[in-house]
Every structure is written in C-alpha cells, then in structure tokens.
Design a protein around this nucleic acid. Sequence first.
DNA 1: CTCTCCCT
Length: 823
Amino acid sequence: MPALPIHTHLPALRAALKEQPIVILQAPPGAGKSTVVPLELLHEPWLRGQKIVMLEPRRLAARAVAARMAAQLGEALGQTVGYRVRFESQVSPQTRLEVLTEGILTRWLQRDPGLEGIGLVIFDEFHERSLESDLALALVRQVQALLREDLRLLLMSATLEAKGLSAALGEAPVLQAEGRQYPVELHYLPKDPEGPLPGTVAAGISRALSEARGDVLAFLPGVGEIARTQAILAERHPEVLIRPLYGDLPLEAQQAALLPDPQRRKVVLATSIAETSLTIEGIGVVVDSGFARASRFDPGSGLPRLETVRVTRDAADQRAGRAGRLGPGVAYRLWSEPTQRGLLAQRPPEILEADLTPLLLTLAAWGIREVNELSWITPPPPGAIRQAQALLQTLGALEGGGLSPRGEQMLEWPTHPRIAHLLLESRSLGLQALAADVAALLEERDPLPRAAGADLDLRVQALRQWRAGQRGEAGGLKRLERLAQEWRRRLGTDVDNRAPDPYATGLLLAQAYPDRVAQLREGSRTRYRLSGGRGVRLSEEDPLAGSGWLVAAHLDAGNEEGRVFLAAPVHPEELKPLAQTVEAVGWDAKAGALIARQELRLGQVLLESQPLQHLSEARRVAILLEVVRSEGLELLPWSEALRQWQARVLSLRSWRPQEGWPEVSDAGLLEGLEAWLGPWLGGISRREGFQRLDLGPILTGLLSWEQQRRLDELAPTHLEVPSGSRIRLTYSPEGSPPVLAVKLQELFGLADTPRVNAGRTPVMLHLLSPAQRPIQITQDLRSFWQNTYPEVRKELRGRYNKHPWPEDPWSAEPTRKTHRRGR
DNA sequence: CTCTCCCT
C-alpha cells in the first residue's frame, strides 16, 4: 500500500479511539482517509470483533470507496468489505466493513436501536453537513449515551471547522492530517464585475485559455448561464471543444464532458455538480463565476425556492482544488479580494434550509416529542418543524403527538413520506401500477425536456412506451424503470403499459400533495391558487394551461407567484374524500349578515358550499352576541327615552349604592350581554334585524317590579312645576343632579328647588328666558329669587315685554303664556 | 429571463 499522509496519524487515531467516544479527523481531500482509515481500524482490540460502518453522502461514493477497499484486500466486493445503498447491496455474513449511504443508517436504527454487532460508525465527508448525517449523528449519539457506551464515532471532515465541531461534541479530540494536493495559484479580479454573468465568465475563460495550460473547468450557477456562455465561446474560440455538464444532462453527454479529448483543448461549463460529485480528468485551470444555485425550503408555503447565491469559501476552495489534482494548477476567481474576505466560510448546514418532513417522521418513530431531546450540532428551526408537523398531520402520520399506524406504515417505504402515502393509498384506489410509475417519476430527474411542459402524464407515457419496447437510452428512462420496478414489487402489482388516465395520475398526486391542489383563477389560463394558500403559475405555452384543477408535484415558491414544473389534472369530485367538511359559521361584517354554510374545503380551496341545515340556536346567538360585542351597543335601537332610562337607573345606583340597582352602563350591559339580550336574538340574521328589537321591555326586564316602581318614584321622568306644566328631567349616567330646564315665569311662587330621590337630590335648574335662552343655572331657587332675579328682571323686561316680570316673584301667578293671552 | 445538488 503506498504511503499516504494519513498513515503518520494512524497511531494517534488508534489511541484516541481507544479512549474517546467521539473523535474528529480533519484531513483535506487527497489525504486518503476514506479508504485507508476504515481498513486500518478493522482489527482494533476495542472493536471486540464488531463491525465498522462508514456513512457516505452519495451512492456513487459508497460503491466506489467500498470497491477500492475490497480491491486493496484483494477480495471481491461483499466479502470483508461491502456496501448498501437503497435497493442495492453487496454484503455477506463475512462482511466486517459496510459502507452505507447516510439514510440507510437511520432506517437501520428503527429496527435495531442498539446497533448490535457494530463497534464503530464513521461519518465520511461530515463537513458537508447533510440533513441525513446531522440526523444520523444525533440519533447515534443518543444510542451511545443510553445503550452503547462502547460504541465509537469517528467524524471525518475536510474543512477547518473542526474546532467548532469539537466544542459542539463535548470537546472531542481533533486530529489533523495534511493533504496531498498540488498548489493552485489563485487570481482575483481588481474589482467585482458588472453585467450578465455569461459575458464575465466567457471573458475569464478566454483569459484562462491564453495564460494557462490544460483543460478549463468553469463553474456557473445553472443551465441557463451555461447555455449562454457556451454560445459566446463557440463564436470566440471555434478551435476549442466546449462541453456543458450538469445533473439534468443525459448520461452519455455527462461522460463526454468527463474524458479528455486527444486532439483539442477542452472547456467544461459545469454547475456545482463538478465540485464533489463528478471528477473531470486533465483539468489545469478553473474559472469560477463565484455563484451557485441553492434550494431553500420556505416554511411559510411548504414549497422549495431556488436562489442564486454567492459561493462560500469552502466551496470556492473545493472548486479551485479541481485544478490541482494532477499537478500545480491555476484558478481564476471572477470576484475581487475584498469580496473574497466577505464570503461565508461554509454553506449553512442543510438542516437549516431543508424540508423537515422526513426528519420529523423519523423522530416520531424514535419516540421523540420535542426535537431538543436530542443533541444537535445545529438544532432544526421551529418554523420548518411546525410546517413538517402540519403536513404529517394532514397525511395522517401523526396521532396524539406520536406516530399513527399509518405513520408506521409510511416508514416501511424507503421514500419521502408524501410518496409513501401515495403508494399506500394506491391500493385502495386500485392504481398500484400507475402509482409505481408516478412515484419513480417524482423521485428521479425529469426524463423530458422542459419544453414538453408540466404534464406528468407525458412522462408516464414516455416511461410506458419505452418499457413496451421502443427502448432507447434517452432521458434516464432505464433508471426510472428500475425504480418503478422496485415499487411494483413492493405493491405486488404487474406492469401496466396502457395509455394512462391523466386524471388518475392527478388523483394519485393529490394523495402525496394535498397542499398543492391548484384551482384556476377566474379570467386566467395560467394562474392558479394552491390549497396551501400560495399563488402559482404555469408557463403560457404549457399544454396544461387552462385546466380548471391541477395537482402540482414540483414547483418553486418564487417571489410573488410560484411556478409549476410538474403537475397533472384532477377532477374536483375525486378530491372530496381528501377534503374536510368545515362549517363556515360567522358574521360577514361587510354584508352585515350571518353566514351559515357547510363547506367542503381542501385548505384554502373551496370544493363545495351549501347552506347549513342545522345551525343550533346557541351557536347563532353566540355569533350575534359577538357581533354586538365587537360593533358596540349602538347596533341596538336606542331612543332618547331609553338612554334616559339608563341614566336614571345609573343615577339611583350612584345615589343609593346599598340598594342593588343594576350596572346598566354600556360597559356593564356588554359584560352581561348573554343573560339579558341573548334570549331575544332568535330571528336575527342580518344587521337590520337588531334595529327591529323592542329594546324598551328588554331593558326594563333588568329591573324587578319593585325596582320599576321605585324608579318612577325616585327618579321620575318629569316634574310638575307651579304653572302646571310637566317638564322633562334630564338625568346623566354619572349621577349628577338631573337637569330641569324651565321658563322662569313658570316657577313664580315656588320658593325652593324641586327635588327627586325622595327629597334628597335637588334638581339642577336651567332657568330659561321666554325665548328658551338660559338665564341662570342653579340648584338654589330661593337665593336666585332673592339675589339675582331683580337684576335679570331689569335686563330682560324691555326685551320680553309681552311676558310678566313681577317685582315680587314669590307671590306672582306662574304662567306659561304671555300677558294678554294670560287668563 | 429563471430547476442547484443529493438521499431513505
């Protein structure tokens, strides 16, 4: 075995693992850690003959690493060294070292939480911080703490963040190994470029072609930029071979980009797929646009959103490192040095940006109610947790905070909970064969070009036609069929190659995506509203445009409106079993009317609505009372007399606090609304109905007979004055003395201020002129006659000469008339 | 104008 840098660190690593439950090995790419370390540890005494498991983030890597190690032992795969990825494994009873993709371990743990027979779990490429590796680590650490103190964990990481990681893991020891990478000379731009990216990258590539040697690898964010850059370069450098490279490219085209061309110099225009997943031979120069596309889960809508973001420092280093695999290389970074200093060190761990539905289902199966029962390096964010819980609830996977029987069934299917639910439901719908095809298509890359539009049914057709015999390699259909075959096997169903029913496809999609049922908006052919609440759009040319109802499987949350990439039409009647019957009962404030409808709803989307047959009186009254509470007592038909009644009762309440007069202020009435108003609301269903209430008797009912009698006696509505007039009193709710507004002439002969409240409360006299103008306000009539009247008389006598102004008011005849017509 | 990558 050739000596790799890692070999010098092996004694320290052995010693650390002997003592420590968790060890971190930091080694850059090329140090040989993935293939050397597991084999070297296989015979450690502390393993006590138990197996080693190593986790890889990608299937390709799991197979390749296992194969390299088997070759080093001179064995076939599946002897001492084996691997497992979904639906594929090479292991035997002799296997002592198993390389797994990360998710496989999580599934193992469900069945065997003690990890029996395993002595060491190695996390390779841990710095990538995939959702699965964070979850696997959290679970395995709990196993270690509760059941398996002897279990050892080794985290292998390529980046320099080992210190922070160590701190998060109880000061786990960190070993650092050197890499075996050739130096890469870095070039920055004097300032950040402006204008469209393809032009900038094309210029960078021209410079790389003239200044450096070897093939060129350029990193761009996505397919659009790659195509535009290719167009510019093809004109400028006809002598160079240009190859695009991205995940959606057919396999043959990908391979063409990987191999060197013997005749021509090659430029590969790649997405971030070439950072780690694919290695290109013969690259001498890297040109890095500095941008990448990243998917972020939007917890608000439950939809992913694709964003163009600046690369992080570790990604930029990884990109540049691609030029230093065979010899010293060069990398052109198309940004400035100040910008470089501002780059984020690493991408945020996936757990912060991903859909957490699968994670939450796993946790529920693990019996975890509260995510922080586990030790996380980065705890999952609350918004995404809530969204995942809501979705699992909708899919019927949860029950009383734990896993439901359906949730348990879902876990038996190695796929996203949405798709597991679709597969399970296909049985009762009698659509198993179609479900197998649909599930495969939902998981894999789209076999058709984007121009084909969003119709999922076209994909089912393509898969079925391919299967029926007109086979070619195009579009990864073979891969799709392998997957579909697995689902058919598990569903116990046969191939069906007939033309599919697009509405059946839509019905299946609705099982997986009940939150993505889309109803066409009125007056539009492309704009839809999702049951989950968001607005989404199809492209104008899409053959599905104009369909009234769709279920969207793949979409992008977008900014204001989302975009649909994959969908199928659906009959709304077929959605009824998924929908919820909701009683829409309440008050439409705008229309001023009671609403009582029974609605069949799928989230925000209304399937059906009909008047509610039985609205209980209690509910109706409760709603109406709430309306009064929110709109106020002014909704009721108050008259001046009733407001006075209210003020009279309140006056007595304040004058005679011991007597138990009721609290009939507006606030008090609102407080006790149910009791006094509730029984009268029977027939009301519109705002006008309140105005037809007979409020007088309703309010009077608040007083006992005795109180009603005493009210009239103690706080009469009117008083008779010497002239014989019955004059209205005006009470105030605060209980200040009631006002008696009366023409002065009507009081002649009266010595003292009239009183109410059994003689205890003198009224407030507003003495008026014959023209009803106030002359004086007083509670002391005697003093008025004595002190003020002579002056008033002098002043007004001339002006109102038809009225009597006797010198002696004490003995004058009271009158409401003028002189002449006086008796 | 506008779909990165990966996985049970």
